[in-house]
Every structure is written in structure tokens, then in C-alpha cells.
Design a protein around this nucleic acid. Structure first.
Lengths: 282, 282
DNA sequence: AAATAAGGTTCCAAATAATGGAACAATCGG
DNA sequence: CCGATTGTTCCATTATTTGGAACCTTATTT
């Protein structure tokens, strides 16, 4: 009942749209056959507001019941979905298990680890590492201060590219045509009075390119500011960034300016580390 | 080169074996068609020691090159795998993204959250929440002390059932025939001098049933002890547990005994919370 | 520099798996 | 107890996957 509108829309938008891989000149060819169909279901369940019943999924996916049934059985057998006693589907622990492996071995994360910590020590604020995927930033790691933390919370999270420090910093590395291509897919949602529009974002990109750092001036959330600097592989096969984030009352713009230089330096070190293939032991 | 032996074996063992769902009397029917084949590949990459090249995967999977090629393309298109500039495959960020959603919404975790924190406050030590999947314990959450933490590290991690407090506690809830069924799949690896064998484990299960708590007396790692208590849904459709873990020098057996009662109580509250469907707002 | 090998990719007829309509259970509400 | 709703199974049809072979492309050898 209250689950009846997990929005076919937002599923597609937040879930699948992210799929758009960055270096994909020839878009529109996600012919992944059987797997593609299953992933749509997985997305739907993952991005729903709560567990979904068979009927809900049937309605939203438009698949005939017989087909859907077998698909769900397969997903459950593989542990990608779970079916509880009340007949409701939610995502399976298998995902967590696979992601945990994936995360633990991620090369960028391993290289960046110690630098993030250094930045945290220097600033005392929360440090993030993120990567661009499609028109979103996905956070790969986070080092918080002394607080008792909800660490995982941000990791793996996907945020819009246009109102995060990491997103803007990363964008600034891309050639204009790629930026344009990316931004056509984006709908600019106004999170705060300071959130960018397409035009103001493009204007700021120029500035970011000159400075080598991007600021988030409460553009995503009121009361939250950050400084970020870009990271990339040599051929831009991936781009991302690191940022220092905190409450506006503590992070005045003056203070953020002070941190610009160390952030830029750290980002450069990470980029270099990636390029020369520094393993987990730099 | 150095990747040539990512062990077809350990892939199957650590990866797929975990799939064995608990309440599956009629095993041996993992007919998941296309999806199953792709998951084997995903597992292989996820459980390898590093990125794999096409040829490595081809050799290990035994698939003809043409077939394998298309399968990998599909996995990459869906973001489940990533192909770097050197032609090496590793797991994709899509997994992290999905798992992050999954984790954030997990009902058990949401119910348990505040209780874990309470236990952390009481003991000052690290508290874990885990669930049984096949013959492994998968950690769902972790609350650490004041240290600057590597939070994610343990979450999603799969550990053997027979040498973890949570695993043993959870086992103790199951009827003997199900325990037997589970343990036939298990090879008892000797991690420390105190690690259980099949026989000693069964012996301890009786004791755990009487006490309602399980101890890990340096059975998985020398110098690490823990107390754990079991959690379950009404019909045992899932079983798991919570534990308090720490260094042996601080966690004497006397101290662990003192915590037995609070842990038992907390575990009971969580079980009740689950059963009456307490949402995230208890 | 040419020849050879190894690593990847594309093609296509044959084999296999997915599809979806319909018939069949099970559960629910009155 | 009936009718409605929800979930499951069956099976001929349709679509996808398969795998061998031919084909590129890059390293390696002579």
C-alpha cells in the first residue's frame, strides 16, 4: 500500500542512469540481454523505499507474472535478492559480501588511504574520496574526525555531480565536449539557494580549472561547505577527487582557502601514485 | 604472472559455497541459467587477489574465448566489472553502490543499531552484528570505540562459522539436524591452537544452549576474545548474533562473564524488535 | 624487417535458455 | 462457501547464448 509508489521513475533515474560509463562516446548500446533485464529488477528493489512484494514488482516492471517469477527465483537463488517470510523482496547480503571484497581491494582507495588520513590530521574535518560514474559522484572512502561514526553511510553513496565539491573538481578535468555530453543527461535539482544551474556551473568550471580546487558553498546542503581537488588517471579513463567537508560555521571561506594548497598537493600525490601504480604500500 | 594462481579452488570455496542458503532442505538445485554463469565470473574476479586479465579468466573458467568475451562485456556494461586501461578486470563500483543502498535499508541492522551503540557504551569495546549465510558469518554492522576507524573493513566480511562468537551463538539456535547438514560442507581450518574441530564444536554447542552466550577464546585469532549472544527471527528463517570483541589482555574471561548477561538481554531485545517489526524508530 | 605467436574480437549456425499465455494452486475477504 | 486476488507451474514459441573458426591487433622472435 504505502509501497505502491516506489516510482518507476526514480528507479530508472537514480539506478540505471548512473550506469552511463564515462568514456562512452557511443552511448545507447546497453544490450546486455538477460543480465540487463535482471539488473533492472535488482535496481528496482535496491532503490525502492522498502521491501517490495511480488505484485508491486510485477506492476512496476510490466513483465508477465510467469516470467517475473522465474527471474526473481534466480536472483534469490544467487543471493542477490532475499525473500522474507511475508513474501517481500529486498536486496541480498551477497551484494554486501561482494562489495566488501571489491572495496577492500580497490586500487585507488588503497593508494589514497594514507593521504586521506594525513588530510584529516591536518584539518580535523571529514575527508572524502570520490569518483565520477556517469553524472554522479560515488564516494569510495571517508575519514572522519574523532566522533563516534556512522562510517559506511557515505561510502558507496551516489550524489549529483553538479553540487558536490568532488563532482565539480572532477568535471573541471574533462574537455568541454565531454562535460556537455555528461550534463545533457542531468536535471539540475535545486537543493539550496546556492545550488548551481547549468549556466552557473559552466561558469564556475573555468574558475576551478584556473585554481585547481573547487568549493562547495552550501550548494548541496545548507550549512555544509567543502574544498575539493581533482584526481585522475593519465588518460582520464577515470576522474574523481578528494574533499574536506564540514559545517559552515567552522569552515569559513577563509579557512577553506587556506586548505586549498594542501588539498591540491595531496590530490596530485594521489594521482601520481595511481599512475605509477603504487600499490597499498607507498 | 603473479596472478596466475588465483586458485580456481578458493574461488569456488569462499565465493560460491557461501551461497548455500540456510533454509534449503533440497539443495543441489542452483539452476540459475545465464545469471548463474555470470555470477561465477563475478565471484572469480571478486575473490581473486588482484585484477585479472582476460586470459586468466579464460583459463580458470574454461570457457571458450568467444563466449567469455561477450559475458565480460555484459558485466562491464552493467558496471559489475570494470576493465582498466591495461586490460585487467576488477569488480565494478556498481556493486558498492547497490550494497550501500542495501545496507542502509537493512531491517535487522536498523533495529539493532541503537542496541549496538548501547552495548558499546557499556563495554567500551567493539560490538558486531552478524548473520549466518551458509556456513559463514557475514558481518552487517560494527560499532567501534573512540579510535579513528576503518569502519567498513569488517562489514560485509565473511568469516567461518565455527570459530567466531557470533557463528557459534547462532548455530546453537538451530536443531541438530540442521547443524549437521551445515557442518558437512565445512572444512575445519586450524587458525590458532584453540580453534575448534568438528567434535569439540558440537560439544560446546550444548554448553552455549544452556548459557545463552558463546565465547570465542582466541579461536580465530590469537589475542582476540569475544562474548556473543544469538538473535533470530521467529521461524529461524534467519539466525545471527551480536558480539563484543577485544584484545585478550583487556578482556579477561571474568570480564567476559560479567558482560554475558547484558549481551543476552540486548540480543533478546533485538530478536523481539525484529519479530514485532520495529522499524528504524524504536 | 619479416615471420610467428599470443591476446582479443567478431561472426554465425546450432544448442540452450527465456518468454508469456494459460491452466493450476493457495490465500484472502466477505 | 464463493469469488477475487496473488503466486506458481507448464510448455510451445521466440530470443539469447554458445562455441568453433576466421579475423584483427599487438608483442616476441629470428
Amino acid at each position: 500500500m504505502e509501497l505502491s509508489d516506489y516510482a518507476t521513475h526514480s528507479v530508472k533515474v537514480s539506478g540505471r542512469a548512473i550506469m552511463a560509463t564515462l568514456n562512452n562516446e557511443t552511448r545507447e548500446r546497453r544490450e546486455t540481454g538477460t543480465l540487463g533485464k535482471l539488473m533492472v529488477l535488482l535496481d528496482m528493489v535496491a532503490y525502492a523505499d522498502g521491501p517490495l512484494r511480488f505484485t508491486d514488482i510485477a506492476a512496476a516492471s510490466g513483465q508477465p507474472r510467469g516470467t517475473l517469477h522465474r527471474q526473481l527465483v534466480h536472483l534469490v537463488e544467487e543471493g542477490l535478492l532475499e525473500l522474507d517470510a511475508d513474501g517481500r523482496y529486498s536486496t541480498g547480503l551477497r551484494l554486501l559480501e561482494l562489495a566488501s571484497r571489491s572495496w577492500a581491494r580497490n586500487e585507488l582507495r588503497l593508494v589514497a588511504e594514507r593521504y586521506l588520513r594525513e588530510l584529516q590530521d591536518l584539518t580535523g574535518e571529514t575527508v572524502h574520496l570520490g569518483v565520477i560514474r556517469g553524472a554522479s559522484v560515488i564516494y569510495l572512502d571517508k575519514v572522519e574526525g574523532r566522533q563516534p561514526v556512522r562510517m559506511y553511510s557515505q561510502i558507496g553513496n551516489a550524489s549529483p555531480i553538479y553540487c558536490t565539491g568532488v563532482g565539480k573538481a572532477a568535471l573541471s578535468l574533462l574537455p568541454d565536449d565531454r562535460i556537455d555530453a555528461l550534463l545533457t543527461e542531468v536535471t539540475f535539482q535545486r537543493f539550496t539557494p546556492a545550488t548551481h544551474t547549468h549556466e552557473t556551473l559552466l561558469a564556475e568550471i573555468g574558475e576551478i580549472r584556473r585554481n585547481g580546487v573547487a568549493f562547495d558553498r552550501e550548494e548541496h546542503e545548507v550549512g555544509i561547505r567543502c574544498v575539493a581537488a581533482p584526481i585522475s588517471s593519465e588518460n582520464l579513463s577515470f576522474v574523481g577527487g578528494i574533499s574536506v567537508t564540514g559545517p559552515a560555521y567552522r569552515l569559513t571561506m577563509e579557512r577553506l582557502e587556506e586548505w586549498a594548497e594542501p588539498i591540491r598537493q595531496t590530490a596530485n600525490r594521489i594521482s601520481t601514485g595511481i599512475r605509477i601504480g603504487l600499490g597499498p604500500r607507498p
